[in-house]
Amino acid sequence: MTTTHTPANAAVPNALTDTVTVFVRELRPVLRDPVSIVFSMVQPLFFLALFAPLLPGTLGDAAALQWFVPGVIVMSCLFATGMTGSNLLFEMQTGAHERLMVTPLRRSSLLAGRALKEIVPAVAQALIITAATIPFGFRASVLGATAGLLLLAVLAVGLGSLSYALALASKDRDWLFWTVQQTLLFPLLLLGGALLPVSEGPQWLRVLSQINPLTHVVDAERALFAGDLASGAAARGALAAVAVAAVGLYVGIRAMRKE
């Protein structure tokens, strides 16, 4: 053992292998400690418990839940993925990110692997919320819910990427990350019509709402969970989610390469 140093069973990995490596690395702590998924859900569950009774009708009113639950599912996804950049921000400070940057892992995989991992908590949370509301009268079509989760997964990748891009841009400035993140979170959520209907609002609000991709995803989730797969709302939502994912990955990978 004096001349060659590269282990014999090493093959130069491709982009897909790299992405899987990063994905698995990110996922492991979640799998080792699944309760962590519930933590970022506390807020959405509170909203569910406190807001639902305020909706027209009483708790258990199926129509109200049918409208409200898909919104909370998107909200939960937005909260979890919006925060995820802080993990990267932390690893940029401790040195773990630097360690990964000096491995042959591709920059694009370092971003994509992390973003893809966001699917797991987002879908897990959606399932928990769905399961928790069914006893109160929430009804989901199996096929529609599956399509809804798929849509949510695409959205999670996009939002996660954007959060990572923000973390990379905030390097060494935690406050910048949190300020931007908090500033965007609630307008996106409220203008998205996740918690309150926007259709009754003034003209300017409705315009802003239409520009917000979340609006279309929320509408699509409502249609899909109701089993309305062929609707225009579902198509618009899919388009919006794919657009968010495409923009997110583009911006995120660029930020990672610039590092």
Binding site: R25, R28, P29, R32, N87, F90, E91, Q93, T94, G95, A96, E98, R99, V102
Partner: peptide, 13 residues
């Protein structure tokens, strides 16, 4: 490369 910081992610095993 063993950098000046902690290479291992603190939340990982």
């Amino acid at each position: 490369c063993v950098g000046q910081g902690n290479g291992a992610g603190l939340g990982h095993r």
